[in-house]
Design a protein around this nucleic acid. Sequence first.
DNA 1: CGATCCGTTGAATTACGTCAATAGACGTGG
DNA 2: CCACGTCTATTGACGTAATTCAACGGATCG
Lengths: 246, 246
Amino acid sequence: MVKLSPIVACGTCPIRHNAVCAKCDAEELVILEQAKSYKTLPAGSRLAEAGETLSYFSTIIEGCATISRTLEDGRRQTVGLLLPSDFIGRPGRATSPFDVEALTEVKLCRFERTTFEQLVTDTPHIATRLLTMTLDELDAARDWAVVLGRMTAREKVAAFLVSLARRQAGARGTATAGGRAVVHLPLSREAMSDHLGLTIETTSRQMTALRKDGLIETPTKREIHIPDFDALAFEAAEDDDGGPIV
Amino acid sequence: MVKLSPIVACGTCPIRHNAVCAKCDAEELVILEQAKSYKTLPAGSRLAEAGETLSYFSTIIEGCATISRTLEDGRRQTVGLLLPSDFIGRPGRATSPFDVEALTEVKLCRFERTTFEQLVTDTPHIATRLLTMTLDELDAARDWAVVLGRMTAREKVAAFLVSLARRQAGARGTATAGGRAVVHLPLSREAMSDHLGLTIETTSRQMTALRKDGLIETPTKREIHIPDFDALAFEAAEDDDGGPIV
DNA sequence: CGATCCGTTGAATTACGTCAATAGACGTGG
DNA sequence: CCACGTCTATTGACGTAATTCAACGGATCG
């Protein structure tokens, strides 16, 4: 089920100013235009497999994917959630240490790996932007370690909804703090649980508890309404003003 | 108790080939030589505080430090363990989102923040190396997320000892796989527990259990002997051949 | 209309946390 | 030198949050 998407120019690309190309000038963009190609993959596709060679590095234009590892006995932990403008691949290494799987249909902007590695070397604006993005991801990974290591199930679920709401609002350019917010869940309960380090049963129970406490509303299983964003953030044991700086 | 350490030339620096300067040529090193300064700080010092401005970016030459966050109610999670050659600071941002604390006396090679940010811009070899190091740290943070999210207390302790043994062996240039290994613990049980997302009691019990099972020997509380490294790695639920590629 | 998938809920189990007591290491001072 | 306080680590008894096992309900699909 792999289909070719209509060609999109970088100038009209929805993630132009957030992706790895964000800092590129018009001249550099011309080079990227020539090297890029688009690909749409269906939900459930493997975009990368731990240890396997990656032919392409990609940026997600649309859709959602997880970075995860599965232990031999089947335990799985999701270690990153990829949304539009996020980058898949690591210059200087041909393989990924984790699995990357599409949760929804995903539209990618791809570069052949070796081509991209050359671009990083030749184009300082790409290297700089990639460093910034990697540092942001590192901060996010460490923020998440606090959730995994020290939070209760209820706090984990609240923290996840809060974090997803912030990212989705950020992508739309809307605010979160204060009033209502809406989150669309691209993850199943199982995928959520793998991200939270919980079982699906515990995740489900905590969702129910948050709903009964009036902290969330669930018109459908994949749509979450947050009547009072700050109240939910409080449940997530947020220590400071407003969550990760990312 | 801050004392000045004897001046060390980059050429004889013990971490010359692993730190952020690793890829620099002789010419670039001259610039670094002029900009750097050394500082030794005692165990317990705060090298950075969450949200506070950093005047200096530093590389650890000797000693050990933790990156951590403490929640309002006192729960603490360590999200990174810094050993010699590790870098503290983030170009493009004046503050750290986490606390950084010295576990032992620490010897630092420091650059004024703004100076270093200029160096990153002007010196591609530093930018490249910093990107590689950040990507490695990101992989390590994600590896640790698997431990925090999905492993049992016993596996967590085993995974920590295995990972520390690998890093210490790597720094010495010795091998781990196969036979005996020795680990020096720069962390108290409390610091270990904060890293593992456990209580000190549980950590202590698991150490005792591993000892009773013959997987480790503890001549002193801070010195751990591993008679069969692979056996301990097996306890850490290692899925593949030999742990993180980092 | 049965089969399958996904999510929810209940009951029983357990791994880890909490509370508490104790012991060893270390330093200080009489 | 020993008495004392402090700090860290260990161990035991008990409590609990989350997992496990199991049943069930509502979609979706052939």
